[in-house]
């Protein structure tokens, strides 16, 4: 009896996840159309940007033809889409290289930076959030509140610039630019990305910590928690065993939102530290109107976002028997 219900519960969950997945694909398609249309609205095209200020009309027309830009917009979109579906994101018009090759040099950098940041940020955020929730109203809570609030309020370019001024220019401890190259060893790499990670952490830790605190406090007022406390369960155990399973869904959701920012939103950090990541590549693609590259980057960011959301949703479904049973 119990086995059958859990089995049907799993089935329902799988259907739910399947639906999420299908809607993600639809979202991807819509995003690609939107990006394509918006890029068409930008002034100038690849040929004009490539030839620059000093181009004549003849040169532009010739290059446009060579790049296939003289075809109507919908034809170009469909040919891009068919390429994408068959696994070929096309040729970068500006770099004269396959888009896949251009991205393959940048994507690992971005993923590594995001992963390292997440590795640092998640434990710190959880500790701050839970710690301040357990100490609700107390001194530690108020102090952490002020710290996280000011971290949310301070823009990242300010954090990054001040960090560079202190740690690179004044103290000369860390390099001011984070060069990712294949012939670097790990200690060099970690020194280089220390400040980008620090800056990104400041942004995401604050958000995640505040959401964690709110989610935990929300549960703390419930009768079941009161019951556990009255039973004499230790406070740490109350939080970890009783509260966390119930608070996990909103926390994972908040984390997924924050982490999705680490890929595409890292553009300011990438610019300030000259880190060769994917976000600055996409900005490059916009300014040079390199449509295939732009589309591919947008797809990657969108996919990463959707995957994180999917993970959050699945976690919420699995963590909550009520959702599973629906």
């Amino acid at each position: 009896m119990a086995g059958a219900s859990s089995q049907s519960g799993m089935k329902a969950a799988l259907i739910l996840i399947g639906k999420r997945f299908a809607s993600s694909l639809l979202t991807l398609l819509m995003v690609s159309v939107t990006i394509f249309i918006i890029a068409q609205l930008l002034p100038g095209d690849t040929a004009q940007e490539a030839l620059g200020q000093s181009a004549t009309a003849d040169q532009v027309a010739a290059l446009r033809h060579e790049m296939g830009l003289d075809r109507p917009a919908h034809v170009r979109y469909v040919s891009w889409l068919t390429g994408m579906v068959t696994g070929d994101p096309g040729q970068s018009m500006v770099a004269n290289m396959p888009v896949a090759e251009v991205i393959s040099t940048r994507l690992p950098n971005s993923l590594l930076l995001a992963a390292l940041t997440a590795l640092v940020a998640i434990p710190v955020a959880l500790a701050i959030g839970i710690g301040s929730a357990m100490n609700r109203g107390g001194r530690i809570d108020r102090a952490l509140n002020i710290v996280t609030l000011s971290m949310v309020a301070v823009p990242e370019f300010l954090v990054a610039t001040i960090a560079v001024l202190i740690f690179s220019v004044k103290l000369r401890w860390l390099p001011s630019i984070a060069m990712a190259s294949s012939d670097m060893d790990w200690s060099d790499y970690l020194r280089g990305v220390a400040m980008p990670i620090l800056t990104l952490c400041v942004i995401v830790v604050a958000q995640m910590a505040r959401m964690t605190r709110a989610a935990v406090i929300d549960q703390m007022d419930r009768p079941y928690v009161e019951m556990a406390v009255l039973k004499g369960v230790a406070p740490v155990r109350v939080v970890l065993k009783h509260i966390m399973p119930n608070a996990i869904a909103p926390i994972v959701n908040a984390m997924a939102l924050s982490l999705s920012y680490l890929l595409g939103g890292a553009v300011i950090v990438e610019t300030i530290f000259n880190y060769p990541g994917l976000a600055s590549l996409m900005v490059n693609a916009v300014t040079s109107r390199d449509m295939p590259l732009l589309q591919a980057c947008a797809m990657i960011f969108c996919t990463a976002y959707l995957i994180l959301m999917l993970i959050a949703d699945v976690t919420a479904i699995l963590a909550n028997p009520r959702l599973r049973a629906q």
Partner: peptide
């Protein structure tokens, strides 16, 4: 040879001895 598009970062990189 590298490119640092942001002027403040470029100056900081010089002053910190990285370039």
């Amino acid at each position: 040879l590298i490119g640092i598009p942001d002027e403040t970062s470029r100056v900081n990189a010089l002053l910190s001895g990285d370039v």
